[in-house]
Structure formats: C-alpha cells, structure tokens
Design a protein around this nucleic acid. Structure first.
Length: 504
RNA sequence: UCCUCGGUAGCUCAAUGGUAGAGCAUGCGGCUGUUAACCGCAGGGUUGUAGGUUCGAGUCCUACCCGGGGAGCCA
C-alpha cells in the first residue's frame, strides 16, 4: 500500500506548491464527468480542491478509481498544482494518478437540501458538509480569540466543577444525578466558584460546559452549552460593562480579520458586524421600559408589519408569474422555477408566522409593566432601535438572582447588566456586580428559601476580606450563531444536546 | 405544560374530496473543461399510527405518536 508512505499536502497549503507535483489525501466531495474526463472535488478538512482526471493522462487503474468512486469515498490524488481563479480555493490539480483508500456507498447527505431532523440524526456525517465545516472553524477561532483576549489582560483561566451539590440560583431546573447515594447536579453556572477564584487571583475566567434541564425548544437554547465567565475583584458595574464591551468588540474584530473564508461560506452579511464598535448604547431597565411603551416603538412595529405585507405580496406575485411561465418553459428553467418556489414558500411561511406574532409583540411592548422581566420579543424589539449590541442595566432586584448587589441609589434595583446582540440573536451576556455584604447575602438566601449550609463557603468570601467584585457570563454558542449569522445554536456545537436529542 | 405549523419515494417538495407526481440521489446509456454540470431511459409508495365521515380520503373529523418554531426560563 504505497500511499500510506507517500508524503502528502494539505489543500490549504496549495498556494506554496504551484507548479509542483504533490499528493492530496481526502474524501470525494462531488464529481462531474464527461466521457474522457472526470472532475473530482476532493475534501481534506482544510479545504476543497478540484482534481482534473483525463483518461489519456493517467493509467487504467487510476481511471477506474475516478470512474467508480462515489461521494465520501477516501482517496489519494497525485498531480500538478495549477492556479485557476475559477475554482474553489483558487487552485486545481492536474491528476497523474488516483488511488482508492476506501470506498463509500450511498452516502446519505447529498449536495442538495435536507431537512433538520434528517441532518441531526446524521450529525456525525453532517459535520463533513461545507457549512458545518465553516461553522466549526468559526467556533474554534472564537474560542481562541476569547482566550487571547483574557490572557493578554492578565486573567487566569480556572475551571469550576461540573458536579455540584447545590443549585446556584434556585430558579432554573437542573439535571440531577446520583453521587454515591448523595443527590448532586450538573452545574448551571461556574459563577459562585469563579468568585472564590477571583479572590485568589484577582482576575479569572472559567470556560466550560453548563447544563440546564429546561424544556426550551427554541433556536437559542441547548441543554448543554459552553459558557465563558470572567470574574474580577475590585470591579464595579461600570468596569464590568466596559470589559464586556471591549471583549465583544475584540472577538468580533478577530473574526472579521481572520475568518474571511468561513464567513463567506456561511454567506454572512459583514456590514452588521463591522458596526460592532465602541461604545455600545447603555440603557437602564427603566429607560428600556419607557422605550418599549413609546409611540416610537409602536410606529416602528407598524412599519415592519407594512413592509412584511409588501414582501408577501411581491413573493405571491412572483410565484404567480412563475406559474404562468412554467407551461412553455424549458426544462432547466422549470427546475429553476421549482427551486425558487420552495424558497418562496419557505419565506412566505416565515412572514406568515411573524405577522401572526407581531400583534402580540406589539401588545406586550405597549403594555409592558415596570417590574417584569423582558420576554424574548421585548429584547428583540429593543435591539431594533439600535445598530449594534446594547447593554441594559439596573434591573428590578425582584427578577434577578439573590447574589446581585443592590443599586445604592435605588434599593429596588439590582446592579445587573445584559448585553443584547442585534439581528434578533438576543441575550449573549448576563452578569453584574455581586453582593459583597455578609448580612445582606444571608438575608437574601433566607428570602429565596435557599439552604444556608450549602452556601457557607460562599459566605466565607464575605467574611474574609470581602471586596466589590463583578463578572458576567457569555454564551459561546449564541455568540457563534450571531457572528456566523446561523439560524440555530444547534449548528454551532459539534454534537448539540437539545430537548429530545441525546444522539448521536 | 401551553400555543402554533407540519409528517406523501432514500432526500427536498407538489397534488379544487375523484387515476399519487417532479427534481435530486441510485442504476444503465450519451457527452472532450465541468462549476449543485448537462441530455435520455429505468427502478423506487401500506401518504406518521389507529379509528371515523363519504359512493370515493394524501385531502374532512377524533385520538395518539414524531418533528419544526414560539411562550415560560435563560446564555
């Protein structure tokens, strides 16, 4: 088996080998054929490359391999690297030899459209597809950007435990497990531990998996997701917001600078990302409530409704025109019309759904009462007023966790802050300044019906040199979805865990 | 748990209550550079399940199962 010993080249390095004869190892992504020529698109994990196989330029065995290999068959192709602007990646390989490494038959994911359930059942194979490849590389780059940001600012990365004996906030549903006969939970946040670690190191961040047993079926929820939680001693709410802002701007800039290809594959509109610059609008909860209830918001909603109706009419007209044309159309045109019809129908369904929702959204915004927490629609509407992420701060204490510090200027308010991403991606950051007074915390634990014994170690942090401190959590998958312009967080993690989905 | 939309060929989708179709995938044939290649032919169906209405049900009704999106909750 000669090919196991042959040195090989990665597709992403082809630019350095122009004119040379090299070997690629990978899988068949797609193939186009004529009588005496095969165009073989090879995928090797670093990119795609078209290999041109002429019958009279390769030996018979190579020709047979090119002729017979099916989608996702593994192969080695040797040939000369040639620059060709028309190709994906800009290079193609003039093949001199093709060798089969292993065959593949009836690969289920064809280069056409598939439904979500079908793809999710085959997530282990779906990861090979181009969009998923781009999404995972984007995730990787974002993770590295996050580490670079904190490391360059002197933060220490420390891990919070995944198994815990008590619920952090007492509000969310946790996964419970049996820990040698003791009840235990999978962590829903590393924050309390991060506070302890910040008192040891000053500035720390955790980066790990988080679990929520909530039965949320939306494009923004997973039951297992990754969260980055910086926690800083001697930081107040303002410093916390400054950090979150710097952090997000930095990550977005890195992605824009270094993920050009990934964003292109994902067909991400770059303009909204380029607008992510300091400063982010900072709006207090109370001002946000006023904005929600304002005439300005009502008018904006009306305008949106009108434009949706317009789009709906235009699409229906296009569908009608296409149907008229269909009878006399040539075959290729008929196909085009069929494909477009599916697109039109999907978009019409979306519009229909949004039009169904809008009146409720409008009503919810118009009649929003101070003291309630924002719903998903309220957050979305707020972000429509701005062209970049916004920070909402100083929420009613009643809707926030027990460990939030109160606003010294208004005891009804907690010094919490959320960062809301634009384009409907919602809350990507939640955090705030932590309560640092022992008596107040004890009081809160009691009022929230939490077991004080479980929090004794946490209260120790207030007994031995308590200081003002702050932190926040950033949802990795929501961030990847936002930056990649992805519909759903399930495409931002290799093997998503959702309600009713535990495999593959 | 609730609201809402859906389940038809391997996949994506069509089908005013009246003979279940198309594209892709697969197989065979054709084509000297293709870009989701193209052209021709072929095979492929218990319309999610169980009942009901009807001369007749993919289509209407009831219950259940599965999935999408949303509410609550949150990152």
């Amino acid at each position: 088996m000669l090919f196991f010993r042959m040195p090989f080249t990665y597709i992403e390095d082809l630019a350095q080998h122009e004119g040379e004869t090299i070997t690629l190892k990978g899988w068949l992504y797609n193939k186009r054929s004529s009588k005496n020529i095969h165009f073989i698109i090879v995928r090797d994990g670093t990119g795609l490359c078209q290999c041109v196989v002429h019958q009279d330029e390769v030996d018979e065995a190579s020709w047979d391999v090119a002729e017979e290999i099916a989608q996702e068959g593994a192969l080695a192709v040797t040939g000369t690297v040639k620059k060709d602007e028309r190709q994906v990646g800009g290079y193609e390989l003039q093949a001199t030899g093709v060798e089969l490494i292993s065959a593949s038959e009836d690969y289920p994911i064809t280069p056409k459209e598939h439904g979500v359930e079908f793809l999710m059942d085959r997530r282990h194979l779906w990861l090979r597809s181009r969009r998923q490849w781009a999404a995972m590389r984007l995730r990787n780059r974002i993770i590295m950007a996050i580490h670079e940001f904190y490391q360059s600012r002197g933060f220490i990365q420390m891990d919070a435990p995944v198994l815990t004996g008590n619920a952090v906030e007492g509000t969310t549903t946790l996964f419970d497990i049996d820990y040698f006969g003791e009840p235990a939970f999978l962590t829903q946040s590393g924050q309390l531990y991060a506070e302890a670690m910040a008192m040891a190191h000053g500035k720390v961040y955790t980066f790990g998996p988080t679990f929520r047993a909530e039965k949320s079926k939306t494009r923004r929820h997973l039951t297992e997701f990754w969260m980055i939680e910086p926690e800083m001693a001697f930081y107040d709410l303002e410093m916390n917001m400054d950090l979150a802002e710097d952090f997000i701007v930095d990550v977005v800039q890195t992605v824009l600078d270094e993920c050009e290809e990934e964003l292109e594959v994902l067909e991400r509109d770059l303009e909204p990302l380029q607008r992510v610059q300091k400063p982010f609008p900072r709006i207090s909860y109370s001002d946000a409530v006023e904005l929600l209830r304002s005439d300005e918001t009502a008018e904006m909603m009306d305008a949106r409704e009108a434009s949706l109706h317009e789009e709906e009419e235009a699409l229906k007209q296009e569908r009608k025109d296409n149907q008229k044309e269909y009878g006399q159309a040539k075959k290729w045109r008929k196909r085009q019309i069929d494909a477009r019809e599916i697109e039109i129908n999907q978009r019409l369904n979306e519009i229909e759904e949004e039009l169904r929702n809008l009146p409720q959204w409008k009503e919810s915004a118009r009649t929003f009462e101070w003291g309630n927490d924002f719903g998903g629609s309220d957050e979305t509407i707020l972000t429509w007023h701005f062209d970049r992420p916004i920070i909402v701060h100083r929420y009613p204490a009643a809707v926030k966790a027990f460990y939030m510090k109160r606003d010294p200027e208004d005891d009804k308010l907690a010094l919490g802050m959320d960062v809301l991403a634009p384009e409907g991606y919602g809350e990507i950051v939640g955090g705030g300044q932590r309560a640092d007074d022992l008596g107040f915390l004890k009081d809160q634990i009691e009022k929230h019906d939490l077991p004080e014994e479980a929090f004794e170690w946490y209260l120790d942090l207030r007994r031995f040199g308590t200081v003002p401190h702050s932190g926040f959590g950033l949802g990795l998958e929501r961030t990847v979805a936002w930056l990649g312009g992805l519909e759903h967080v399930r495409e931002t993690i290799p093997f998503p865990r959702l309600l009713g989905r535990l495999s593959p």
